[in-house]
Design a protein around this nucleic acid. Sequence first.
RNA 1: GCGCGAUUAGCUCAGUUGGUAGAGCAACCCAUUUACACUGGGAAGGUCGCAGGUUCGAGUCCUGCAUCGCGCACCA
Length: 703
Amino acid sequence: MNDKFLTPYNPTETEDRIYTQWKESEYFNPDKLPSRHRTPFTIIMPPPNANGHLHAGHALTLTLQDIFIRYKRMQGFKALWVPGADHAGFETQIVYEKKLEKEGKSRFKMDRDVLYKEIYDFTMENKKFMEHEIEKMGSSCDWSREKFTLDPSVVKEVQKTFKKLYDDGLVYRGSRIINWCTKHQTSLSDVETESKEQKDKLYYFKYGPFTISTARPETKFGDKYVVMHPDDARYAEYKHGQTFELEWINGPITATVIKDEAIDMAFGTGVMTITPWHSGIDFEIAERHNLPKEQIIDFVGKLLPIAGEFTGMKIAEVRPKMVEKLKEKGLLVKIDEEYVHSVPVCYKCATTIEPQVKAQWFVKMKPLAELALKAVKEGRVQFMPDNFEKIFKYWMENTLDWNISRQIVWGIPIPAKHCEKCDEFVVDTEDVTKECQKCKGAFVKDTDTFDTWFSSGQWPLLALGYPDSSDFKNFYPTDLMETGSDLIFKWIPRMVIFGLYLAGKEPFRHVYLHGMVNDAQGKKMSKSKGNVVNPLDLIAKYGTDALRLGLVVGNTPGSEISLREDKIRGYKNFSNKLWNITRFVLSSAEGEVYEGKVQDEELAKILVDVTGDIENYRLHLASEKLYHYVWHRFADEILEESKKILKEGSEEEKKERKQLLLHILAQVLRALHPFIPFVTEEIWAHMPIADKKMLIIEEWPGK
RNA sequence: GCGCGAUUAGCUCAGUUGGUAGAGCAACCCAUUUACACUGGGAAGGUCGCAGGUUCGAGUCCUGCAUCGCGCACCA
């Protein structure tokens, strides 16, 4: 027996060496697998952001995907797992802006090209860390196929998709209400905002014969339309279109009555004035009745000249001052101090979103969402756990047009131009149009970039080299998409849509969504709370195998998991237990070669069970069953009873028992390999088995 | 306001089709160098959130309620 089993298992010493062996074997590459591997099984890795280090959530997703890939590879599938890296437009730009802030710089004072180059270098540097960490997790992904979301071929294809959507009438440029982050100076899509509940004051003002209420008096300077529900009996005497004179903030104005069903009669007085430039609802009302829109607040959050004496002031400053002024004019009716409502905030900096009207590129979602909805209803895309199907459908039935323009440099440029003179625009992927056909003015390139999710949404296609590559022909549609449940809106629907729209086929058949990884007390990890767990620290202490098992056992699909160190420590002990079992088996069976003749019905039955569990995405059960069998059945009982047989049995009984021990150990190593690949591969190398291959391509033991 | 999820041992969580409650950790007792102390054996610990219902039988199915968490909407 090898002396190495005389000392406890050392993950740190083992893991990097084994990973190198796997890489050298080239078995991560499906084209290099032995001939028994014919039917493709494909997973596209959700590309981690290339702007920093991996967190616990990455550790979980990589573990789950690697388990499925290794399992399928052992079963004889032509397993492909495509790794990637995401430039993560807005998020990376924010990370870099924070870095600039620390250095006392601002991106708004920098040349665009210089800034782009700096973020590019920063990203390339961080991409290396991220890739190294994917390797540390034991991920058996095919590095020869790795893609980056800013690879020239990817950029080109994303721009072509934009052109195609435009030609098909599914992308349009429009001046519509958008979510504007005054800190980051960019528009955001609806999924890039969050709701924040807060308590504000609700002000009631006299507006001619009416009393209106508002939480945002500072937007009211230009309000000239007063709106009420057509069925509201209280205001039946006022007719739609009727005008009246009134005294308002900065003097007398003429206002018009508008009747619209969007008004909630139960709210406040049932009457409101509208500010179409700074409110989604008001914008819609204005659109319906063809009313003018006027900007009150500029893009940095300061009042425009329409505010008269308040021009140039910030919102927070203006609000009390103008309320005071209205009070002096006798127009303040009352103030409700306890008005609790939610406001949209930037999901990254929590700055309150200022709705603005701005010319942007939009994707017309309804016809595309219908494609996705149909695919899900027909079962061509299935969710695990299946309650996500309901959420997906609801979302697809209630889509808003998607703003894909971002006013940031870090991203894929939108291939469009507009005329300096008349604002005519043109989509130009080849950069050939120089002059406006309408007015002969000069065209300038759009400086906006795409929403990251516009390119990420096409990732299953792009990662496989859509449209012409052989990989795309061989491996699309993919089999499984494993990602966090928080991406059910941001990402999953967009991938389904683009897959169906561009390739005519759903991008994946199954979606497995894991829950968020929380700290030991079940609290969300965040830098501000200081409870962030770094997977690399855990790997250094307990080994990757232990971390992987700790993330998988008892973790049901979709539900949150509390990451506790004592649990991971327990699974480090399991690796060592397996190590010592091997020590006992190999020393007991010294000189014996595994003949593969014995069977063990009990184990065979468990392996059938485990196989069923994995097939049905019950990894938490599969892993626990194996753990329990190895520790409490194989070690505690079978090994113990073997001691007596090996000591007192006949020669025949001894030989049979040795074969049985080798058999169980071999089967258990195979079955555990997807879960704890390092220690099993290491032990496998010392098994007395003739003509064995590396464990990574050995046959899966269950039926 | 609408929707989703959770509520099971001290803690963190399993419990696949309804058939006398499980794991890991912690705590308790015993064993003291055993393949493994990163160990073994043992014992203890739960009216499965509450109230009804269906059933021969409910942690599991149905209804209602409560508490916690999350998402969406409104956000005048």
